[in-house]
Simulated assay, not measured.
Amino acid sequence: MYDVVLLTLGSERDAPGGGCGSGGACCGGADDTGAETGEERCETPRVPVLACADALTARGARVETVTARSDAEIDSVLARLDAPARPDGLTWPDPDSKTRLIVATATDAQLRAVLRRLVRRYAPPPSRRPADLAGDRTVPDLPTIGVLPLDPARSGAGRDLAAQLGLPRDPAAVAAAVLDGTPRRLDLLRNDAGSVTLDGALLGAADDAGRPLHWRGRIEVDDAVLSNGEDPILACAIGNAGGYATLDGLPLLTSPDPTDGAVEVAVAVPVVARSRWGRKRVRFEVRRARGRAVAVVPRDEKIPFLDDGVEGELNRKRSWWTEAGAWAVWTS
């Protein structure tokens, strides 16, 4: 039978039984540039966690619940998924591990925080790239994880990643998937700031009155140029899954698929047209492209963005690229 670790994320500022506050490991925190603030409240209800633990125990699993309040505490849990030492000295995941991990998530940002630490743990330095790593990947197949959503209200709206993927939300069903289910491999977006994206990113913002703020930047998807840096851009959606497929009713991404090995990018640009009577009318032109990588070079000082729900500001070039099938979830 399996050892199962049920991981929830918190903050050192939490009171017992409270939420996770803002920033830090809980909500995704900042990347290497410190640009992402993660300023959102991430409540972590205990009832679903205890119900899932009870369901696992009833099936004979050895269960441990852990609340991690720092990256180091997340890392200590992930170390249990390591393979035996390799001759090349690299830390590598164990594909035959008898330890299984369930991440209890109040937000997609919490799930991303764990995946980011998995990538940090198992991605080899370029100078030590092993021969058994696929040529189109920078990380090995990451360990399959279970996902326990903690917000049942989001299931119907399909706003979180678990709902988009059709993952079970009932604690007993999550337990069954982890013990009896099959892995479903999913694409991962890495970026050159050292972070990862599971769902997608949306670049752009609105003023206090809700009016969109136009910005400029050069946006390339592989060899396709969606903006040369001169267009006034309303928004740019970078999609792995479909969380940012629309913006205020405007269709951006047409067919985001986290299993197709590609990133889909859409740029919305206002276009002024004249009617037959000479009146000006503004419509939005959406330019789309798919590829393995996307690069955004801001022409303005700062571009606000959301990445898996975490807020940040882009003030220099950033690139995202696809790691096809790099991570996996347990499904029933």
Score class of each variant (00 low, 15 high):
P232T: 06
A241V: 04
S227H: 02
L165G: 01
N240I: 06
L234I: 12
P171W: 13
L213S: 07
D231L: 15
D160M: 09
E220P: 00
E230M: 10
L202M: 12
A237I: 13
G204K: 03
S227L: 04
L203V: 15
L179P: 06
G204P: 09
G229I: 12
Q164Y: 00
L188P: 05
S227M: 04
N191M: 05
L167E: 06
L189A: 15
R190F: 02
V196F: 04
R184C: 12
T197P: 01
R218Y: 00
L234S: 10
R169T: 15
G210R: 06
L186E: 00
A201S: 15
L226M: 11
A193V: 11
L226K: 10
D207H: 09
A241T: 02
L167R: 06
D222A: 08
D207S: 08
R169E: 15
L167G: 06
V196C: 04
G158H: 04
A235D: 08
G166N: 11
Q164C: 05
T182D: 11
N228I: 07
L188E: 02
P232M: 04
P168D: 12
G181S: 10
L202D: 04
G243M: 01
L203F: 13
E220F: 01
S227D: 11
P232Q: 06
I233C: 04
N191P: 03
L161N: 02
E220W: 02
D207V: 09
H214C: 14
G158I: 02
G217F: 08
L179H: 07
G194C: 03
Y244W: 08
D248W: 06
A209I: 00
V174Y: 04
D223K: 08
A162R: 01
D222R: 08
D231V: 08
A245R: 12
N191H: 15
E230K: 12
A163Y: 03
A193E: 12
D160N: 12
D207I: 08
T182L: 10
D248R: 14
A224S: 09
A172F: 08
L226E: 08
A224Q: 12
G200T: 01
T182M: 10
D192W: 04
P232A: 10
D223F: 07
G217S: 15
N228F: 07
R218S: 12
R184L: 15
G166V: 11
W215D: 03
A205V: 05
D207G: 09
A175D: 10
D170V: 10
R190W: 00
L188K: 03
L203M: 06
G243D: 00
D208I: 11
G158L: 07
L234P: 01
R185G: 05
V225L: 11
A235P: 05
D160I: 07
G204R: 04
A205T: 15
R159L: 09
D199E: 06
E230V: 14
